[in-house]
Amino acid sequence: MIEVGTLILMGVFAALAIHSPLIRLSVIYLAVFSLLAAFLYVLFAAPELAIAEAVIGSGLVTLLYLAALKRSHVYTIGVVTTSNVVTTRNVVMHSGLVSDRYAERIERSKAVQEIRDFFIRREFETQLVFLTVPTGQALLDPAYDLVLAEDGEDLVVYTDEESYVMVELELVFQMHDSMSKVKFIRYSPEAVL
């Protein structure tokens, strides 16, 4: 009975580890999963394995994951969704929330893909955050490393003028000759204030 309960709990924690939104949380769920596995080994009369599993599975491996996680940087790109770009085809806002179709269109657009590839080459993970605040407010928020906004057909990229990575990004876009679609605007945080 306890065995079945432990197995079910292990399944639950495995599913939680896969589906949790934060990687840090997944690591902790995996540690709990490992501890339950150690408990199960004890129930199945394998205490030697239980010790090894408890020490390595929930001790050393968890720390290795956390150390690896500390190293991975996530680059947050804020996308300003202004209500004046509502078209008949794509509804941007739907009852105060950004619609899935709009988010998908932005995520699949060539410029965003190129920005992603640029950061992946530099071993940065990127995440898009869709904002419902005005551009000025988004620029002031230090949580967003890069702010995107749509201006008609063009995509406007607001970049910090002190960040030299953005100079490289601009150069990449110039080399690929897709500047017509993407505009770069450099700003200093003090000037916005």
């Binding site: 205490p47 030697e48 239980a50 010790i51 090894a52 020490v55 390595i56 001790g59 050393l60 720390l63 150390a67």
Partner: peptide
Amino acid sequence: YVIVNGHYTPGGGFQGGSVLATLFVARYV
């Protein structure tokens, strides 16, 4: 303890060694 009593209680060289390895990890934390 796990290492020295390994031959007649659960545990042994590898298990005790991994416990000792956590000393390095604790220091790193």
